[in-house]
C-alpha cells in the first residue's frame, strides 16, 4: 500500500482524458436540498385533515414526498449527466 501511496503523491497519476477536467459542481445540485428539507418540517404534515382516499394528511403527504424525492434526484441526474 505504501508503495502505491508514494506512487500517487509523486503525481504520476493522471485522470481522464487530458484537457478535460471532470467536476461534480452544478447549480442543479441545489435542487437536492428540497427533498432533504421537506420531510423534516413536521408542521407541514402533522395533521389528520385534509384526507386523501381515506389517508390522513400525515401519511399521504409523506408518501407524496417520496415522489418529490424521485423527481428532484431524477432531474439532477439528467441535467448533470
Amino acid at each position: 500500500m505504501d508503495r502505491l501511496l508514494i506512487h500517487a503523491s509523486e503525481g504520476s497519476m493522471t485522470t481522464g482524458e487530458p484537457g478535460r477536467a471532470r467536476s461534480d459542481r452544478s447549480p442543479w445540485n441545489w435542487l437536492l436540498v428540497l427533498p432533504i428539507v421537506l420531510p423534516l418540517l413536521t408542521f407541514l404534515f402533522n395533521a389528520d385533515e385534509p384526507r386523501l382516499l381515506g389517508f390522513p394528511l400525515f401519511y399521504w403527504l409523506q408518501i407524496a414526498f417520496i415522489i418529490v424525492g424521485v423527481g428532484c434526484t431524477t432531474i439532477v441526474y439528467r441535467m448533470t449527466k
Partner: peptide
Amino acid sequence: GPDGTAPEHYTADEGDPRIKDLN
C-alpha cells in the same frame, strides 16, 4: 498522516487508469 489521494481521484470514472494497474 499523509494524504494518498489527489483531487482528481474523486471524480474518476470507469475506464480511467487505476493506480494498481499503472503500478
